[in-house]
Design a protein around this nucleic acid. Structure first.
Lengths: 356, 356
DNA sequence: TTGTAGGCGTTATCAA
DNA sequence: TTGATAACGCCTACAA
């Protein structure tokens, strides 16, 4: 037998860490490899006696099935991949936690691929390596920014494993999971209106971002429905950072000194805005109320504590993976397509001192 | 030939996304599979004519090598795994970014496994799945807390693929990469001393954490060398959170009202401490200077902007992967062991308004 | 320069 | 209940 006995393996050199195979176990237990395989996957009927003998051999040798070989014949790897941007930021990292948790629960291993920018040109190359690794499905967790979905050419999806997209504009044929940014922004704006504020400004995120546009739309529609003016003098665009928020706030206060509230499109922006407001001597919330978006844990300790919109991003991650799992299973069973679904998670307003 | 022609594959059903194999390409190009293999891996001499014919077939069919099959033969997967805790926090997420970047650069795919607590009992199970997937190496990015290294039994390491550990106490035989927490804390304490402060308190992280103990040791040794008293009344222990920092600061101010500086063991702790200080009406830095640890991007926008210790965690991630890569290569070439190495990255003090 | 045979470690089929 | 044998897709060694 050309096999692979333990002795041969050991002779490969003590540095080379060799793995035990079915062959080795079978030899030790005095059965065929198929029998060992059956024990490992507990399938088929096996005499209790042989099962125990095999199990003893497995334990003695410390056998672990080689998932690669198994995947080759099974045509499934029990592996998902997540392509993500920005895990050093609060939101994306929470989403990642949700994704990983659910993968673990469903028995998937998870490949992590990061892009340094949402419009990273590497995205097609990444897709290639994922295909080469035969992942069962993909979570596309890069936010939609500018033209960074242009690689999604018609017909391409059919030649790829199932994909769930996060945080992007609804599109026929795509399965998407996202926070309802529009509704979150509406809650924020409505809350300020309910507090009696009338000149409510907004600091948006970069307008190239779908999420920023949605939050803007939520603010705008709520203002209009309340009969409040939506003039350009109430609008400032900013990067997502505190530095951006500070600059945008300074600009707003210069162009419209009598605003009495601000909706900041992220907690970081709100933090910067708070600094800019304090610098002018205005008091929060007496002179100016402010609401953020994210519910970062620190935001409860800003000065004053920040009212904000809580995005349930861990939940988004969970749902994305569960939906992906369903798509995978249904393809496998040759069932008709799972209807492409758009799942929107409702955010929740957290009211703190900065707005009351 | 029992092969795997494109036609057969298509007949598997339009829902089942079938992969093209060397067989398919070879058939279309009218050559042997080995020739195609050579083209794919551009090895051996091949006539330009056949190369082009094969390449054309590859493009036409959209062939992608099956990495699983290749790994099976090559006995290497070009895959690393990172076992991590806390990527929803700033520090760990930065480390993760560094790890992923370097993996990408060196051509590794990266498996992500998260534990929900540093002492998560799942860690051995995770190790098992990584072995089953035949990863080439592992980054152990769970901070050392309490007894959570007890799975590391003597002799175990030899039976595992190479592992690089992050953030733990130096230990013979282990390769470790970490920030020099001790030195960072010393810089912080020395800075406060240089500013003329004398009653310098510390809010430590949980003492079960190695990192917290190191930072404490750095503060303590620097105080002692400067001839300053190190009494228990200057010490408070806290969780890493802002909430913890607030509570610890309140306690400190109660037990020792005349402290003139605080070293907070994380930026989050510092944020909470700032709030507690403000509540008592004390001014920062006039009455009380404060220094944090992390250099989170928000810390520049705290009130006042926070002096802090910048941990170069992306760099730690880079170095961890590079060291791991070396260990893998040297094992492969049967070379003598790579000396187990301890790499400490020096942090850098960032001085802002909170301490001057 | 190209092709054939055999094996990587596993599972499925079909006999025994 | 068990065991040969043939895949899975690729690569190495050796021939042609």
């Amino acid at each position: 037998m050309s096999g692979n006995s333990s002795v041969e393996q050991l002779s490969r050199g003590s540095n080379e860490h060799a793995y035990v195979t079915l062959q080795d176990v079978a030899a030790l237990a005095g059965v065929s490899i198929k029998t060992v395989s059956r024990v490992v996957n507990n399938q088929g009927e096996i005499t209790e006696a042989t099962r125990q003998r095999v199990q003893a051999a497995i334990d003695e040798l410390g056998y672990r099935p080689n998932v690669l070989a198994r995947s080759l014949v099974n045509r499934r790897t029990d592996t998902l991949a997540v392509v993500a941007w920005g895990i050093e930021y609060f939101g994306p990292s929470r989403t990642m936690v949700g994704i990983e948790q659910q993968c673990d629960e469903l028995g998937y291993s998870l490949f992590l691929d990061l892009v340094s920018q949402p419009d990273d040109p590497n995205q097609e190359r990444i897709l290639d390596t994922l295909l080469a690794r035969r992942v069962d499905g993909i979570i596309w967790s890069v936010p939609e920014v500018g033209e960074n979905r242009k690689w999604l050419k018609p017909g391409l999806l059919e030649r790829l494993p199932p994909i769930v997209f996060l945080s992007m504009q609804s599109q026929p044929g795509l399965t998407i999971a996202a926070v309802n940014n529009l509704s979150g922004a509406r809650q924020a704006a409505q809350h300020l209106i309910d507090q009696g504020r009338r000149k409510i400004a907004i600091i948006t995120g970069p307008k190239a971002w779908w999420e920023a546009r949605e939050r803007f739309a939520g603010w705008k529609s709520t203002m209009e429905e309340a009969g409040l003016t939506v003039s350009p003098s109430l609008i400032a665009e900013s990067y997502w950072s505190a530095a951006g928020g500070e600059r945008a706030m300074q600009q707003l206060l210069k162009q419209t000194p009598d605003i009495d509230a601000v909706f900041a499109s992220s907690d970081q922006i709100a933090l910067g805005a708070l600094g800019a407001i304090h610098q002018t001597g205005r008091r929060v919330p007496q002179d100016l109320a402010i609401v953020g978006f994210d519910n970062a844990p620190e935001s409860a300790f800003y000065w004053p504590p920040l009212t904000t919109v809580y995005q349930k991003l861990v939940k988004v991650g969970h749902i994305a993976v569960r939906n992906l799992h369903q798509m995978i299973e249904s393809r496998r069973q040759q069932r008709a397509y799972v209807e492409a679904a758009l799942t929107l998670i409702e955010p929740e307003l957290i009211v703190r001192a900065s707005s009351k």
